[in-house]
Design a protein around this nucleic acid. Structure first.
Lengths: 333, 333
DNA sequence: TTTGATTATGAAAAAGTTTTCATATAAAAT
DNA sequence: ATTTTATATGAAAACTTTTTCATAATCAAA
């Protein structure tokens, strides 16, 4: 693990160029007050010796790491990938480096990760993880690390958040469904431990059904395509219809495939909506009606907010992304 | 950007505990030679002041950052997500932090990223990016950063690699196809700029066809589902069959959907194999026969190799992951 | 009780930068 | 020619740790 050994340092550059540390530092950082000749001379030795400044030492000396910590449950979700993609894009644009922390959906891990974020000396953090709550974020903030939180309304010093608008739209869609048809039982698919967003949406679902005095069902499903497919194959032996609200495309896909394979028609017998639509909503047959949020944009926004926050220039401390409903083939409307 | 301001340092802990820096350092690092009383006293002040050591300063002092740089083209691919997932898993297990660098498929960016990796003071790097070649890796290595490269055979100091075995299996599958049926024209879908793996596989494809004296086609396709779907809808107006080798599930899905929507039967008229099978191969209808490599395992293996490399204990410098062929509904065999 | 070995502690140097302040040089103004 | 101003440079402190070496304190052995 001794990768730094023998690294060429600013001392050697200074010595080899016959100038002082300060001068070398000035040319590295493209500052004024160094004659073209000196600059050229130093740059030549830098090139000759292959000198690269130590980011560590720079960060220590300047109190700035240009490094941002990203906390996610796992890289292994399409929407997290999109989110990361947005983040990397502006990170590159603005010259930040990213430190990736994953919590593996465990509260203990999440707390550990927070410690790591603090010791990591990041200039800021973006948290997209349901294990962490407002109090945890406050702790991070108490260590002077500006933080933006995704999918959780937080307030406080050095803190911003972006939240998702699903409830309103879901209620609207359900109202519309109840009004125009409403013949099938609305069924919300509850995935164990799937976090705040699903919980909030579930509440909205219940509310909409209650408002319309409609019977509804909450069904527990496994968060995997294969398992859900099997479960729904079994389910459709005895049930011949349903208006399903599914968390992810993969679950929605399990339903449409199981329904089709059970000889049911979509959307006549079975309707399905995926809450978190990704590009795969287009690939299944029939295609999946879904709520969409552009997670890449969310990532970009989060970065911009964080940068503003760091500069004490964040005006709007909470930013809401409304989901859009895309009707495809798995619903009538 | 001044998050470090007012951070409590080891000085303050030492002063408040009435001991020296060295002693505080010893208790932080759980070393011996400090009496239980002193240790308790120091730990108490650490807790009271909320002191967290600066990872930056530690890294500078010890020459170890416990930080590993990950270079990828973009987070936005399923197989990269899986790969990242494997990496984060062992990173957590072994106490490493990850720095994520994405090259956006650009050679210029990739070179920049390499510079950043060098200045970032990582303890090692894992490169999964086709823009970078052996020479670039050698440069990284010349800065004493141990590196493992994915999907490219490299040799040299402080370097390991894991490579993918597709060619052999593809050739085998094609031989089998030619022997048993071979009625449809084999068509390889070439995606512009899609890197080494595709290029190698294409060569293998051509070789297999030539060996069997079979006519074949190379077709250019767009690397997006929607675009490819349209293109294949058009294609199937005039062509009524084909034995397709597609790079990704999304392209394979575009073919099966377009074929189905054009009234063609799968696998009777059209057969499709996806080279990089993901969980989505199961979701399309018909399901996609595919070559699979467990990218999560690749990520884990890469990390283990890197750790061994850092400790000068890497015995096997190149590690090969053979793909497995999973026959599903989009092919006869 | 003295010697020797062991353990606990601290002072100071080191890691690789930036930055402040002072000084030396050059250029401009009188 | 002299003073003022601006520019270029360097010495040294700072950033926060770890680590080496020396010293002080404790304990066991003689």
């Amino acid at each position: 693990m001794n990768n730094l050994k023998d690294r060429v340092t600013i001392y050697e550059v200074a010595k080899a160029s016959g100038v002082s540390l300060a001068t070398v530092s000035r040319v590295i950082n493209k500052q004024n007050n160094v004659t073209p000749e000196t600059r050229a001379k130093v740059e030549a030795t830098i090139a000759r010796l292959g000198y690269k400044p130590s980011g560590l030492a720079q960060a220590l000396a300047t109190n700035k790491s240009t490094n941002i910590g990203i906390v996610i449950p796992s890289a292994n979700y399409v929407y997290i990938s999109n989110f990361l993609n947005g983040i990397t894009e502006v990170a590159k644009e603005k010259g930040f480096t990213l430190s990736l922390f994953s919590t593996s959906h465990s509260r203990d891990d999440a707390i550990n990760v927070l410690e790591k974020v603090i010791t990591s000396h990041v200039d800021g953090a973006i948290i997209f993880d349901d294990e962490l709550d407002e109090e945890d974020v406050a702790k991070l903030s108490s260590y002077y690390v500006p933080t933006v939180v995704i999918n959780n309304k937080v307030e406080g010093e050095r803190t911003g958040c972006v939240i998702f608008g699903y409830e309103h739209n879901l209620i609207h869609i359900l109202e519309q469904y109840f009004e125009k048809d409403g013949s099938k039982c609305p069924i919300f698919l509850h995935v164990h431990n799937c976090g705040r967003l699903l919980a909030r949406t579930e509440k909205a679902f219940v509310k909409a059904c209650n408002n319309a005095s409609k019977e509804y069902k909450i069904m527990n499903v496994d968060d995997s395509y294969t398992r859900s497919y099997q479960d729904f194959k079994a389910y459709f032996k005895t049930h011949k219809s349903g208006y399903f609200i599914a968390y992810r495309d993969s679950i929605a896909a399990a339903i449409v495939n199981a329904a089709t394979d059970s000889g049911l028609n979509i959307p006549e017998d079975v309707e399905v909506i995926s809450l978190i639509g990704t590009k795969y909503a287009n690939i299944t047959r029939p295609t999946l009606s879904s709520f969409n949020i552009n997670l890449q944009e969310v990532g970009k926004r989060a970065m911009y907010m964080l940068i503003d926050l760091s500069n004490n220039e964040l005006m709007q401390k909470t930013y809401k992304f409304e989901s859009t409903y895309v009707k495809r083939q798995s619903t009538k409307e």
